[in-house]
């Protein structure tokens, strides 16, 4: 999927550059992309190491187990397979909690570890399992309590009231979250039904 998406985007970009006449912007863009990847990796390494280390401590002390038990009804709804087998469920609990608390840079490493664990349930298959898709999509449309980046941008632009967007953002992100959960569960059920009929 990544290969196909990359290929489609490259061809699309080349064609569009021909249309808009910006073909000489393409080569610098590639180099900008590689250096951006390095920037992202650099920050990712640091915070991934820190939070994965903390995750291990939380596992060892049983703190994460307490958290998972606290939100277990939610976890059972979102990640039925992982709840049954226990693979990656603590990391999922940590990731969801981190997202809610607004520490996005902890949520990502937790989610990445969760996915690695979930692959064990998946028998190493090349297709993503339903739980994996659920975790990915709720990370992409989380319940956003404090959208700092946007508020900061609004402040810099001289907004009269940068935080006026809070209530609409809450409404939209909660609705988006609910829609995501409904969509994923429905599609997962449809796919499972199709597989049974085969």
């Amino acid at each position: 999927m990544l290969a196909k998406t990359f290929a489609v985007m490259c061809i699309l970009s080349f064609v569009c550059a021909l249309i808009t006449g910006r073909t000489d912007a393409l080569t610098p863009a590639i180099f900008a992309g590689t250096s951006r990847a390095l920037d992202i990796s650099a920050s990712l390494v640091g915070m991934t190491c820190l939070w994965c280390g903390i995750m291990n401590i939380l596992k060892k002390t049983g703190a994460i187990e307490m958290l998972a038990r606290l939100i277990s009804p939610v976890l059972r709804l979102l990640f039925p397979t992982a709840c049954k087998t226990g693979n990656g469920i603590y990391e999922c609990a940590a990731s969801i909690s981190a997202n809610l608390l607004g520490i996005g840079n902890a949520a990502t490493p937790f989610a990445l570890s969760a996915l690695k664990e979930m692959q064990k349930d998946n028998d190493g298959a090349e297709k993503a399992s339903d739980d994996m898709i659920m975790l990915t999509l709720i990370s992409a449309s989380p319940i956003s309590i404090m959208p700092m980046t946007v508020i900061t941008l609004r402040n810099s632009a001289g907004s009269v009231s940068p935080t006026k967007i809070l209530v609409p953002v809450w409404i939209c992100s909660v609705c988006g979250f609910i829609i995501t959960v409904i969509l994923v569960r429905t599609l997962a059920g449809i796919c499972r039904g199709k597989r049974k009929h085969k």
Binding site: M9, L12, S13, C16, A25, A29, G33, T34, A37
Partner: peptide, 17 residues
């Protein structure tokens, strides 16, 4: 994967797609 993603995103925005 990060390299591929960032390059694709960069190409997309630079080309005006």
């Amino acid at each position: 994967s990060l390299i591929l993603t960032c390059c694709a995103a960069s190409l997309f925005t630079a080309s005006g797609a």
